[in-house]
Every structure is written in C-alpha cells, then in structure tokens.
C-alpha cells in the first residue's frame, strides 16, 4: 500500500492560538419571508483566514454582512476588538468600514467614473488625506498587486480579474484589521480567480489582516486556515 506523504514543516499552518479580533454570537437575521440566520456564532482570530462555506441561500452572505456592520442583526451581538459594534450608529459603522474593515464583493464595488488609483485612494481621501500623498500610496498598493500599469484606467477598461485586484487593493489600503470577502472570485475564471486569491492571502498575511471569506467553491475555501459550514442559517462543524 502506498505510504504517507510528508510536506515540509513550514507548509503546515501554525497551531498557535490567536486572540479573537472579531466575534459574532447567536446572530439571527430574518428578511421577512425566510430566516437567513438562525443563531450563528463565529470567532475570527487576529490575522486568521476563515472560510465560510455552505450551499447557496444558506445565509453565509448575510453572516458576513452582519459581522461587517453593513446589516444590523435582529438578535445577537457582534464584537470587534472587545467592543460591541452592532448597536453603533450608521455613521460609526461607516467609520469602521473606512478604517478597520475592508469589504470585497463579487462585483460592483469600484466607482466606474474614477480611475483605478482614485478608487484605491478612496478610503484615504475619505479620512481627510491630501490628494497627492493618497494617490502615491494608492499607486504603491497597485504595484503590490501587480496592476500598477492600470493606475490611470477606468474599471470599465479592465478585465474582471484586473478590476477585482484593484478592488482588493482598495480593501486593504488602510491595512484594516479584518477583510470581508463575499464570493470574490465567483465571477472570474479559474486562473484569474487563483491570481486574486493568491495575492489577497499573501498581502493579508503581510499586513496581519484577518480575512472572513465566504465562498461556495472548495478550492477558494482551501486558501483559508480554517473552515466553518453554514447550512440553513445554522453553523455546522
């Protein structure tokens, strides 16, 4: 019988315990016709990449939106760095999105009338940075993702994979504590999707950003350190 296979030690993920940076407890969300979340609890450690999988319609996207403060859960609590955030005002939660959270969707988050560099500089400009330093930082980040040649192009002039990499750059430009990615590669082909995921995980590990990754594709989930499965609004495993 064939024997076992050993990979070098540094390929295995480190088992060191991490402090929790974001946690959701007993989250419930109902859209009226069917409950999307029926009591899900999640803990995300610092710098950890957590994959949330499950069949479509199981509530994983709703979970991500509640944890990111975009939606208010009907019941349950969300804590970030020890502080409860689901009861914050809309203004406070948008400040969180500006400085501490990055969000990445399947599509439609770049502003189509602004160039790639301006899009990446957006969170910095919103915080009050001056235009020139913000644009320079933006270009650095585009370089980090290998798309600096697209800095002055509009999103409509790029391929899907390229615009997603710009979107990842924008999500990580403030070096947030948590990056929320909802099916980031679902609209891309395999190669483009792998490029995005490789870049995303590489830079996220460099900046120490934790990632909450929602996906239905096991190959994308394999980029995570850990996986939880959401089925019918409940968490299994």
């Amino acid at each position: 019988m064939p024997g076992s296979m050993t990979l070098p030690d540094h390929i295995h993920s480190p088992e060191t315990p991490r402090e929790t940076v974001l946690s959701g407890r007993a989250l419930v969300k109902d859209y009226g016709n069917a409950p999307a979340l029926r009591g899900v609890s999640v803990e995300l450690g610092r710098g950890e990449i957590l994959a949330v999988t499950g069949p479509s319609g199981s509530g994983k996207s709703t979970l991500l939106l509640c944890m990111a403060g975009v939606l208010r859960p009907d019941a349950g609590e969300v804590h970030f760095q020890g502080r409860r955030i689901d009861t914050d005002s809309e203004t406070d939660r948008s400040l969180l999105r500006r400085d501490s959270f990055g969000v990445l969707f399947q599509f439609g988050q770049l502003i189509t009338e602004m160039t790639a560099a301006e899009n990446v500089a957006l969170p910095l400009l919103l915080s009050g940075a001056r235009r020139r330093p913000a644009m320079m930082t933006a270009r650095d980040w585009l370089r980090r993702f290998g798309v600096e040649a697209l800095a002055d192009q509009l999103p409509t002039q790029m391929s899907g994979g390229q615009s997603q990499r710009v979107a990842v750059a924008r999500a990580l430009v403030t070096e947030p504590a948590v990056l929320f990615a909802d099916e980031p590669t679902a609209a891309l082909d395999t190669v483009a999707g792998e490029q995005v995921m490789t870049e995303l995980t590489r830079v996220a590990r460099e900046t120490g950003t934790a990632v909450l990754l929602v996906t239905h594709d096991a190959r994308v989930a394999a980029y995570g350190d850990r996986e939880i499965v959401v089925r019918d609004g409940l968490c299994s495993s």
Binding site: M1, P2, G3, S4, M5, T6, L7, P8
Partner: peptide, 27 residues
Amino acid sequence: HGALHAGLSAPASRAFRLTRGRRLTGL
C-alpha cells in the same frame, strides 16, 4: 484513490526524504 488519500486513514508507513527539487512526493 488510495494514493491520493494516502496518509489520511493509514498511519505513516513510509516517509520520503525531501531534497531540493523534490518537494512533492505524490504517489
């Protein structure tokens, strides 16, 4: 299939020494 899942159910019976250029010993 056994090769693919080698090591997942059976205990390690052989370990391959890994040298440069041979990182994957995929049976």
